[in-house]
Design a protein around this nucleic acid. Structure first.
Length: 195
DNA sequence: CGGCCGATCCACT
DNA sequence: GTGGATCGGCCGA
């Protein structure tokens, strides 16, 4: 069920971003298991992608984990408020990453409610990268973790996603990336049928 | 070392 | 539809 390290070694980051739709992102923190079905992803394609933190081969303390090989988690803080969870893919030194932008709440809904201080949980509470991180308890503690460990991982629950349930579009909030801003690297699951 | 701003979200209008 | 929250990374001086 837990996706193996080999799954993350593909160099085709957009294909992998699409394939992650329907997989289940799980965290097990403080003895609390929470998870959600991945419903939205964005691919960031290495050093040639102007929207990527690794554009031009940039290598800093923040994005160092992007170079550490497929199957690591890359977490960073955005707007000083929101934690963004990314999956590093491709072999070491090829800094591809996939931002997880949305999940459908699956297991541990009560704990997710506690984390977001609400009395209910549904897709609207986890349909953004900052929101899903809060619900799953993701913060900088998980940066650089292997996704084959026991804190955070991704499972294949054999949910079949037909192409007709996937919507492809350009990425969000990357207008500064010039021509690369119009790349169709965003993958949405039509969520109606997957609750 | 100062200042700008981002792979966002929510409350409020 | 908009602006405020909030802070670390990054760049230029």
């Amino acid at each position: 069920m837990k996706l193996p390290l080999s799954y993350y070694q593909s160099e085709d980051v957009t294909a992998l971003a699409c394939d992650l739709l329907g997989k289940v992102l799980v965290t097990y923190l403080d003895r609390k298991l929470t998870s959600g079905i991945i419903s939205e992803t964005e691919a960031y394609a290495g050093i040639t992608d102007r929207a990527s933190h690794a554009y031009g081969g940039r290598r800093t303390r923040r994005n160092e984990v992007m170079y550490s090989g497929g199957g690591h988690s890359y977490v960073y803080l955005c707007y000083g408020v929101h934690y963004m969870f990314n999956v590093v893919t491709a072999p070491s030194d090829l800094p591809h990453a996939i931002l997880i932008r949305g999940i459908i709440p699956y297991r541990g809904k009560e704990e997710m409610q506690n984390r977001i201080n609400k009395n209910e949980i549904d897709v609207k509470k986890t349909n953004g990268p900052g929101k899903l991180s809060k619900a799953l308890g993701i913060n900088m503690n998980l940066n650089g973790k292997l996704l084959t460990g026991n804190d955070i991982w991704i499972e294949d629950n054999q949910i079949i996603i037909p192409d007709s349930d996937v919507h492809v579009s350009k990425r969000i909030g990357v207008d500064y990336a010039g021509e690369d801003a119009s790349l169709h690297y965003r993958f949405n699951l039509r969520t109606e049928n997957y609750r």
